[in-house]
């Protein structure tokens, strides 16, 4: 069973994407999507050795809602900074963040979240993968940005992935 379906979630996503691509939700597209969803993960299984452990799917949904809300709010803030703040008044800053997360999937999701929420871009990981470099567009208080990211996103991801 695990051999036939190495990634059940990927299979599900492939079926949905196939139905969206062919713009129809009929028996034919679902069947063909299922065939693709079985063949593709099976063929590419060598590239995905581990399956990420998600211990709490409900918290993942809550996390997505929080991130979407943050994206919308923070976009308005960044638009205001760009339009109304002169370059001299802006305070760009590097913010190094020591990580508590261990799994690569969790760190990837955290980096993606940081980049998508405007005002911060995740730039680089340290060579041992234990800290993340973040650039902030306008941060008079870099430590505050760091604590905000750690308490708002990292603690939640820790609950989801570990």
């Amino acid at each position: 069973m695990t051999r036939l379906f190495p990634h059940p979630f990927l299979t599900l996503i492939l079926i949905v994407v196939w139905c969206l691509l062919s713009q129809a939700f009929t028996l034919g597209t679902v069947v063909f999507g299922t065939i693709l969803g079985i063949i593709l993960p099976f063929v590419t299984a060598a590239f995905w050795p581990d399956r990420p452990k998600i211990s709490n799917p409900f918290k993942l949904l809550v996390y997505i809602v929080i991130v979407v809300y943050d994206i919308i709010v923070a976009n308005v803030v960044v638009a205001a900074i760009i339009l109304f703040k002169s370059n001299a008044a802006r305070r760009p800053a590097w913010v190094p963040i020591p990580l508590e997360l261990k799994s690569p999937e969790a760190i990837t999701v955290l980096a993606g979240t940081i980049t998508l929420t405007p005002g911060t871009v995740s730039v680089d990981l340290s060579e041992d993968g234990r800290s993340l470099l973040v650039h902030a567009l306008d941060a008079p208080d870099p430590d505050g940005v760091r604590d905000d990211i750690k308490s708002r996103y990292e603690s939640r991801l820790k609950e989801i992935f570990e």
Binding site: W94, P96, P98, L99, T115, V123, D124, E127, R130
Partner: peptide, 26 residues
């Protein structure tokens, strides 16, 4: 992320980033 790495690699910013708090380098 890739474009930021290009900037980091080319050392285009006036202020270079601080070293990682956990030791080592970026």
């Amino acid at each position: 992320n890739f474009i930021a790495k290009v900037h980091l690699h080319g050392r285009t910013s006036q202020k270079s980033p601080p070293p990682p708090p956990t030791g080592g380098q970026w």
